[in-house]
Amino acid sequence: MQATETHVTPAEKFANVCAILEKHGRHPAKLIPILQAVQEEYGYLPEEVLTFVAVALDVPAARVFGVATFYAHFALEPRGKYVVRLCNGTACHVKKSIPILDALYRKLGISEKKPKHELITIEIVACLGACGLAPVMVINEDVYGQMTPDRAVKLIDEILEKEAALV
C-alpha cells in the first residue's frame, strides 16, 4: 500500500468513505475494518474524517480516537510516499534495532521528536511476526531481514536516488 498521489479528488475520496460506511452497514462493531479502509483511501486518518466516521456510526469521537491511536497500523498524520516500519519487538530489539533507527534518523535529518520527512515516514512497531529474520525492516510492502545500520542507509539512498530521477 502506498500513499499515492493519484488524481482522486477530495469529493471522490469522501464518496468512497460513504461507500465504505454503507458496505459495513454503519455498524459500530465494524469500526476497525472501516478505519483500515478509510486509511487506504487517504493514506492516513484525517481528524475531520474520523469525526465524520464517529458521527456516522453514532460512536463517541473519543472512542474512535482511542482506537485509531491504539493500533500502530493507523496513522493520524499524513505519511510519506515511503513508509519504513522498523521492528523493535523483543527479538529485534535484542538484535540491535535501535542503532538502525538512529542511523535512519541521522540519514534523514529527523528525530523521534521531529519525525517529519516529506518523502519517507519512519515508524517503530512492536512486532512484525518475523522474529527469525530479526532485526526486521519493512519498506511499504517489502520485507528486509537481518538489517544493519549500513544496509538501512543504503536502502534509503536507493529510494532518494530513484525519486530524484523522477523529478
Binding site: 481528524e47 464517529a54 463517541p60 469521537a61 473519543a62 472512542r63 480516537f65 482511542g66 491511536t69 491504539f70
Partner: peptide, 24 residues
Amino acid sequence: SEIQEVGAIDFAYRGHQASVLPAF
C-alpha cells in the same frame, strides 16, 4: 459512557503513552 452515555473521554494511545483524553 456507562452511566451518562456521553463518552466524552476515553483511553488513547498505548503503553507508556496511554492517557485518558477527549477526542483528538
